[in-house]
């Protein structure tokens, strides 16, 4: 079997243990490293700051946690109503309600620094300078393992998706953050673009260690009784199982075009869903909305993944990355 990514050297990292090797490297070219014990991550905005679910599942057993989106100043967020259920999915327009970067730093990194699970902070700046400033502030904060740049939030008036829709702006944000910190930098891409591959190439060239995709799809629901949009923000981001085929397609396209690790997300609720993303070319996956529907979705997928790999004769999860993606397979064959 072909090992299609080679970031994790089997001798370099302790903790493999019995059973299939689940470790993945999300920043193979970064000296500060972002090597995860397993490829199942909690997606931003669906797991708070990691503390909220601690009584319900073994948070430390996850691959990593991505924090709720953090802005420079505190934000009240969007008007109510903020959520609406849709067929096999949900719309949300929370509007990045958060206590601001100083509020987050005062409360959570001291907790995170005692954890085995790495915490990645999701940053949502409203200017290039603000992204860079927040990255610089977090550079030396103990307990922060990496950054995920939210250049793709559909629910805020200034910034957010604006940066993620233009390859030059997305690259500018990435380069500014890259210059401000040596932390591993993941850029989270929006699907609300004509050609996601162009954006992906631009941010990789600008220094992104890895990419996560997709953020939510801009959508809308109308309350026909009130004859008004359901959401206070009028539009919101669609997530959940309904989005999965789009996310798989985009992961497939991007993984075929760039060489950095891809973190796939969008509607993953089961092992089968996760396997689709790995085979499309994702090195790791994030689980988001599924946690609302079933708080133990992530540990269930993780257990299932380990058993599936063993049953199918794989010794490492890295062996299944891109199995359904000709370009990824061809690139791996070339590298050998």
């Amino acid at each position: 079997m072909t090992q299609v990514t080679s970031g994790v050297q089997d001798t370099a990292i302790p903790g493999g243990g019995a059973g299939p090797d689940l470790r993945v490297d999300l920043a193979p070219h970064n000296a500060r490293e972002l090597i995860l014990r397993n490829p199942i991550l909690a997606a931003s905005g669906t797991f708070g700051y990691g503390t909220e679910y601690s009584g319900l599942l073994d948070v430390q057993a996850l691959g990593a946690i991505v924090s709720k989106g953090v802005t420079y100043r505190r934000r009240r967020g969007a008007p109510m109503p903020r959520i609406a259920e849709t067929p096999a999915g949900m719309l949300n327009a929370i509007g990045l309600q958060n206590p601001g970067i100083k509020g987050v730093i005062a409360k959570y990194p001291p907790i995170w620094s005692r954890w085995a699970v790495p915490v990645i902070v999701n940053l949502a700046g409203d200017s290039v300078a603000e992204f860079a400033e927040m990255a610089a502030i977090l550079d030396e904060v103990t307990g922060v393992a990496g950054l995920e740049l939210n250049v793709s939030c559909p629910n805020v008036a200034a910034g957010g998706m604006f940066f993620g829709c233009d390859p030059d702006l997305a690259a500018e944000v990435t380069a500014a953050v890259r210059a401000a910190t040596s932390l591993p930098v993941i850029v989270k891409l929006t699907p609300n673009v004509t050609d996601i591959v162009t954006i992906a190439r631009a941010v990789v060239d600008a220094g992104a260690d890895s990419l996560s995709l997709i953020n939510t799809l801009l959508g809308m629901a109308i309350d026909t009784h009130r004859r008004r949009p359901v959401l206070g923000n009028l539009m919101g981001g669609l997530s959940g199982p309904a989005t999965k085929p789009i996310a798989v397609r985009m992961v497939y396209q991007v993984a075929g075009a760039v060489e950095v690790p891809i973190i796939g997300l969008g509607g993953i609720a089961t092992l089968e869903d996760a396997l689709e993303f790995f085979m499309a070319g994702a090195t790791a996956v994030q689980v988001g909305t599924a946690t609302f529907a079933n708080p133990v979705a992530m540990p269930t997928i993780l257990d299932g993944l380990s058993q599936w790999l063993a049953r199918e004769g794989f010794s490492s999860v890295r062996e299944i990355i891109g199995l359904a993606n000709e370009r990824v397979l061809a690139r791996a064959a070339e590298a050998q």
């Binding site: 909220e52 903020r82 959520i83 259920e85 949900m90 929370i94 609302f292 708080p295």
Partner: peptide
């Protein structure tokens, strides 16, 4: 309306 029930999604403020 609620999604998570755990104080995480901030949909029910």
């Amino acid at each position: 309306s609620m999604a998570c029930g755990m104080g995480v999604c901030l949909g029910c403020v």
